[in-house]
Design a protein around this nucleic acid. Structure first.
Lengths: 170, 170
DNA sequence: TCAGATTTGTTGCTCTTGCAACGATTTTGT
DNA sequence: ACAAAATCGTTGCAAGAGCAACAAATCTGA
């Protein structure tokens, strides 16, 4: 079955590396989160890539616009914690593909308010179904309480992060 | 303070998008994990980037090699859930920079066993300190139990994922 | 009111990443 | 034993991402 030796959960080799600083990779959150994010995102990728030709950024923008309705690129950046150039390009691609429309902001003319076209809404609906199914599959093992805890923890993490960022460039 | 409207935790706009498929972005794990991973990784990035000139991939390879000692690229891929070409290039860069050494595998001559040089070990030690500090900062809000739960959940997630992958290409 | 600073979104440039193809080696099945 | 399949790692090429610079609009404060 080829699963030769997926993830050595075996013991450390600290000894050979000399001084131990106390750093432990297996509890290092950026590492753990990256791993989980990469694994889950990779697994869902075929849903939007094959057949729809979307990139991960594009799918994200589509999902956020589908979820929040009229929204600016700026807010998408804030919601997804992503760079504006990345979002800008995803928006362009989705617009050219006919999934999104831009409308000049009424109160603030720097902004462009994004909305799904009918086509885009249909795509969002289709992908939403896949995403829901995928998410349920993932969560079969988790109880609802655990899942809630999980989200709570991720949220607390973000709070800790912004707090950290705050006391640095104060 | 510019924190104009970071993350609209407000209500959905489902209504305008037509049919509701039941998909909810705020509970969609790939999205949540990506967001958290991006936020934490970004925050730690200066530690290895500024002054050491490492990329994220390179730091990851360094950390894993520092943690596990002699290891092959293949196992690094498995541990970090990353692509082999990405790891291959990070290894090359670290080797050229003098942080890593390759040794032809004795039992399997396709593999190259990686180890930290003294320089690499020193770098790992220095960055390990930063990482430990960063991780502690992040976790100040979390109690030890919560943190353990968090790791357990991430782990369960991975199990669910590999299970899912299994029953697909069976 | 109005000059300077800030914010939004786009773009150019460069570096990184992803995928597929490849050589070398090892494993598998007969 | 040996041909076919699989695995490890590298590399070419095209696509994506990151950073900085920028124009346009808005905000700030005197």
């Amino acid at each position: 079955m080829t699963t030769s030796n997926p993830a050595p959960t075996t013991s450390p080799t600290e000894a050979d590396t000399g001084t131990d600083t106390g750093f432990e990779l297996e509890t290092f959150l950026p590492f753990l989160l990256n791993k989980a994010a990469e694994a889950t995102s990779q697994a869902f990728q075929p849903a939007y890539r094959e057949g729809y030709g979307l990139t991960r950024s594009q799918w994200r923008v589509l999902a956020i616009t589908g979820r929040y309705g009229a929204i600016t690129a700026r807010d998408i950046c804030a919601i997804a914690h992503e760079e504006k150039s990345k979002v800008s390009r995803a928006v362009s691609a989705l617009t050219e593909a006919g999934h999104l429309t831009k409308a000049l902001g009424q109160t603030d003319k720097r902004t462009e308010v994004l909305s799904l076209t009918e086509e885009g809404a249909a795509l969002f609906e289709a992908l939403g179904r896949s995403a829901l199914q995928f998410d349920r599959d993932l969560k079969t093992a988790l109880t609802p309480e655990k899942e809630a805890q999980f989200r709570a923890l991720l949220s607390e993490l973000e709070t800790a992060l912004t707090a950290r960022a705050g006391h640095k460039d104060s």
